[in-house]
Write a protein that binds this DNA or RNA. Structure first.
Lengths: 142, 142
DNA sequence: CACAAATCTACATATACTGTAGCTTTAACA
DNA sequence: TGTTAAAGCTACAGTATATGTAGATTTGTG
């Protein structure tokens, strides 16, 4: 049994974030001491680790909720989990592509901005001038 | 002169988002028709294009505000704009690295999840099991 | 037992939008 | 010119994912 602070440290999560996860039902309601402080067991550490890893992998909280629900009912097919992962992979690949285009553009912007005046500064022009645009015009994924 | 809907279409922005930008002072207050509808000029299209490009490039609204302020005062040194761009480039490179680690892990997860049962499903195990973790444990950038 | 550190609740704030309700304006067509 | 559907208006609430703060209480340690 350990405190919320210990759990926070072990998982690299803010204390408030753990309480937030409890509030939205992603973490179960923790047991309490006589004085009302939360105490956690190893299973809570596992669950929170799962959540944090999934967050780092770009899963949204709803996708994580789905995965946890699946994990809570073992013995069922994992095709659902697989399809969630595939969905995420697709998004991740798209984000990488977009960021790489972005990286190129920023590098070009910086290399062309050689300490001149704003009026001549490519940093602003590249973003202002449509014809020089290298990125597509889709929304950034929510 | 064109309507907010036309501006939205040309820039790939939601109408509400344009109004939101006006509200937070990122876009100037638009001129109005006698009936109170907003009407935009080419300069507004330029400005919004600038904002949307910058957003796609990963700039936060405050960074964009800084850049626009610089652009509104031409003739000054662009070293500030340059440093903003460099800051962004650093973040972008980090995001790409993190996403690539993430991509590898998702691919592994999917390849190892061959339609089995959840109890055996690596999708869940990889996320649950700390020892198999390939990613670092930093926060996802805010 | 004293006391600092950690925790508690409740609420506010942040970022960047998105959605809805209910009413008004515009523009196109007959 | 009259009608009417589409688009626009304001105001407010909601979303996702947390983070920050205030002020009171609990815990663990010397």
């Amino acid at each position: 049994m350990f405190s919320i602070g210990a759990l926070a440290k072990r998982t690299g999560t803010k204390v408030q974030t753990i309480r937030y996860y409890e509030q939205i039902g992603l973490m179960p309601e923790a047991g309490r001491t006589a004085g009302g402080q939360r105490r956690y067991a190893a299973s809570d550490l596992d669950r929170l680790s799962f959540i944090r890893h999934a967050r780092q992998l770009g899963f949204g909280l709803e996708a994580i909720r789905e995965l946890l629900d699946l994990a809570d009912r073992p013995g069922q097919s994992c095709s659902d989990a697989d399809s969630i992962a595939r969905r995420q992979l697709k998004q991740v690949a798209e984000r990488i592509a977009r960021l790489q285009a972005l990286q190129t553009e920023l590098e070009r912007m910086i290399s062309e901005c050689a300490g001149g005046l704003v009026a001549d500064c490519r940093v602003l022009e590249v973003l202002r001038d449509h014809s020089e645009c290298l990125t597509n015009h889709e929304e950034i994924g929510g």
